[in-house]
Design a protein around this nucleic acid. Sequence first.
DNA 1: CTGAAAGCGCTTACAG
DNA 2: CTGAAAGCGCTTACAG
Lengths: 324, 324
Amino acid sequence: MAVTIKDVAKKAGVNASTVSRVIKDSSEISDKTKVKVRKAMHELGYRRNAAAQILASGKTNTIGVVFPPVADKASQPFFMKILTSINETARDYDVSIAIATGHSAKELKKQIELQYSEKRVDGFIVLYAGKNDEVRDYLLENKVPFVLVGTPAEGKNEITHVDNDNMLLGREAVRHLAQLKHQNISFVTDTKETEVFEERYQGFKDESEKLGLNHDLLFMDANFSLRNETALVVMDDVLSLKVVERLRSQGLNVPEDVSLITYNNSIFGAMIHPYLTTFDIHIEQLGASAIKKILDLRDKKENLPEKSIIPFELIIRESTKARI
Amino acid sequence: MAVTIKDVAKKAGVNASTVSRVIKDSSEISDKTKVKVRKAMHELGYRRNAAAQILASGKTNTIGVVFPPVADKASQPFFMKILTSINETARDYDVSIAIATGHSAKELKKQIELQYSEKRVDGFIVLYAGKNDEVRDYLLENKVPFVLVGTPAEGKNEITHVDNDNMLLGREAVRHLAQLKHQNISFVTDTKETEVFEERYQGFKDESEKLGLNHDLLFMDANFSLRNETALVVMDDVLSLKVVERLRSQGLNVPEDVSLITYNNSIFGAMIHPYLTTFDIHIEQLGASAIKKILDLRDKKENLPEKSIIPFELIIRESTKARI
DNA sequence: CTGAAAGCGCTTACAG
DNA sequence: CTGAAAGCGCTTACAG
């Protein structure tokens, strides 16, 4: 039915193995033959059969992307954005993307175990870095190639991961606020479970102390309220929307009464006023770097785990303002 | 290396073809043999090789999901949510998901053309329904099985699609507002290009006229402002965030001065006050239904295109209020 | 530089 | 109900 390598071979007057070599642009084949074969491929509209190639070569050329086992992936633009970037970079390397989603780590583990054992994927990109994660344990134990986007709580040294410099991100936020003359600042989070939080908060603390600022940690829940802060560093811009609204309900306006700086530069930071001062963490680059890393790992170009640090960028908008 | 069908066959004392039949639970095989073979599979930890199965059977058992060619997929929780639901339903049918993303229809088309011609997917679920879409033209012309989530502007009769009843959604919004005694209402949108808009707006108009209400259409741009409206119907809850904020900047509060009802019931409708009165469009069901349809199409269980209508549900929260 | 052959791990008519 | 054989469309040592 479909045009195969054999049809091309016959038309070009060569052996099928030669066609195969031309497809992968083998340096063994003469240019003359290549031209001839390519012409035949083109005329016949040849397309390789992915399954046949995978079966014969043992390489799937597809990478699994693992989403976190939580219900609200949809509320964080991060995930859709990095998926897009991963998919688009993958295409440049001629690899496909499979996805794994689930409501629990157990479900996820089952899914990736299946994908890997049925030889559907060569490895994984894991989009979250929780503690004691069943998925990561499985991958590690079975020596499945994977890279983490984020920073693992344990095993930093055994796991290839790509992330921003979260400590520095914490420090830079403080520095921006200090430049604006703020002296009483707090860090606001809605989770203390993640490594991202810990690192950013650590950076926040270190720099605050270095600069001699009063600082504190605030948890965003029903009891959220300020003491004497004039500025806040908030974990992400979706959370910031809530914080801004809560402050307003307490009679405090951003940035007139309190400045706010946050992270991620998602669309939600520039949707309603005050537009948020935020750090762009370069999600496209995180995704692109992750796919490159996993391919290197698979091809054993890199054997040692390493951390890739993606630069960030401060976007100054309306939510931060000099204290007068 | 890995355990194959042959290993299982040898261990169970049967022929490889018998093992293959047991795997697909063929009714031809005796229960006795099935038990015996399954025991062997289990003891050896057998896993099928996906590529081999695809090559031999000609069925890929994977479906491509096509995202819209726009930059801001990430701002609409819809996409991540339906992707999750599609993936999870797909798993129940033992099918995998591939994705296609791109910045233009041309890019997308190239991608799906590749996926289909390399026999990586059996068909597609298309997540958008713009007019004059290159992707859809390609699918139609080449008789590639696909289902649309949404309603196509043209070819409603030739394309299997799943959607809510958008006309009814428009009418019901008006009805809710009418019950609350509002008489001057407007429909707010930021796009007039989509079929969803047209249908919801049509329903809005029809019902308004039927009930004798004053109605109008407002475009959300820099000039956005109300006339004498006391209530609005807004295209989605992310847009509603902007509308609420814009009104506030004009001295109008929701719901005290103007009521607002919207669609989608995303997380953003219940994140900051006023929590939005909204229609839940049952995205999980849209996704689940889409995957079932495409599999039926592939297996020719359904030959005729059909529209599946997914029910919706009104969630009353803070943004609508009786006029006094 | 190229060909002939074996093999990847399944499925599926065909035969009995 | 089960087996033997051919075949799906590639890749890759091996040989020359």
